[in-house]
Each structure stands twice: as C-alpha cells, then as structure tokens.
Amino acid sequence: MNENKLVHWFKYASPQSFYPLAGKMIPWFWALTAVFGIAGLWISFFVAPTDAQQGEGYRIIFIHVPTSWMSMFIYIVLACWAGLGLALNTRLSGMMAQALAPTGALMAFLSLWTGAFWGKPMWGTWWVWDARLTSELILLFLYLGFIALQAAIDDPRRADKAGAILALVGVVNVPIIYFSVKWWNTLHQGSSVSMTKSPSMATTMLWGMLLMALCFWMYSIAVALMRVRAIILEREAHTEWVKLLDEVKS
C-alpha cells in the first residue's frame, strides 16, 4: 500500500511525467503573478503614503526588495535541486537547476540596478563597495558562472555535476548577503522586516512590498517552469516519448 503511494509521487521525478505537469501549472502561476502584481502595484502607488525621509523616491522599495529576496531564494532553491541531482543522480533535478539560473541572474541584476537607482538620490552614490552590495554582485557572478560553466561542458550529466559543485560552494554567499548589514559596518541600512522583530514600516507600505514579493515569486516559478520544459525537450530529444508528443507530431 505504502509502496504504491511512494511510487505514485516519484513518477513526477521523471522528465516525461513532469513535462505535462509543468505545462498545466504554468497558466496558474501566471494568473497568480497578475493578481499579486495588480494588487501590489495598486498599493505601491495609490495606497501607500509618501515617506517622511525619502519622499516618493522610497517607492523603489516595492521592486528592489522583491528582486533582492528572489535573487537569494532562487539561488538556494537552485542549489537544493543541484545538490539533489548530485546525490541521487537524477536528470530532472539538474534540469530544474539549469532552468532557475537565468531567472535568478536576472533578479540579482535587477536588485543591483534598482539599488543603484535608489542609492544615487538617497545616499549620493550609484555604487559603494560595502559588504551587502559586494556580496550581491558576487551572487550575480555566481549565477553567470553557473550558466557559463554548464554551457562550456558538452555532456549534460557532467555539466550538471560541475554546476552543482559551483552552486553548492556559492551557497555560503547567501547568508553573507543577508547578515552583512548586521555583522559589518555598511552603508546599506539594516533590515526593515525580520523574523525576530516587528517591522519598521508603515502597514500599507509593508503590504505593498509583500504583495510585490509574492508577484515576483509567482513570476519566477512560471518562467522557470516554462524554461524547464524547453530544457527537457532539448535534453530528451532522442527519446521515444518526446518524438510521440502532440506538439512534435503535428
């Protein structure tokens, strides 16, 4: 009985079963992206008030924090998939890591870009080599390094393994980014929201930020699922089930 249940779930660990499942999930995640995005943008621009210190310029927070959070979260998820693939020698895990990398890199880039556009008017500079900004830049380099490394290795299984090692080594950077403002003297201010203390943001501002964070999360899942389907087809092109797909037959 229990054996059947396990087998039932593990069937989705094969690219062949995951491909149609992902296809069904994608529209739902786009719908959630739209719902959270519309609600979030509405609050960001029309409900959240102006800030006493930063005026209207603070509204960059509504995309800077979501992209920053996603850049770190996606990296951890990527490292988990890559680690799982390394440990269990599964193909789909490696494909998921491969699918997440470009989106994670984009989030890291947007975090740095929006951060620079926020820093210039508020701090007085586009960039400074403080611990947080530098470690986020390193995160971008890790993503790009992962993508480049996999592109350079022809055999997909070996590319998976090499990428996994790089991803796992780089994981230590994520807590560094998060705790940098606490551990060291930085220009970047400390956390406005944390698990341990109450938020130092007005409620409507906080809600706008959280809704936008959910929007970016749903977006990332939607795009990663789209990309993994393309990767599955690319890497499984030689298999019978791919040749028999409706999209290929017609």
Binding site: P49, T50, Q53, Q189, S191, S200, M205
Partner: peptide, 13 residues
C-alpha cells in the same frame, strides 16, 4: 566624498 546613511524606518510624515 560625503554620503548620507538613512535608517530602515519607513513611515508617512
């Protein structure tokens, strides 16, 4: 060079 450092508080006036 002089840079301004602001805190993590966000609230209306």
């Amino acid at each position: 060079e002089v840079l301004a450092k602001h805190d993590e508080n966000y609230m209306p006036p």
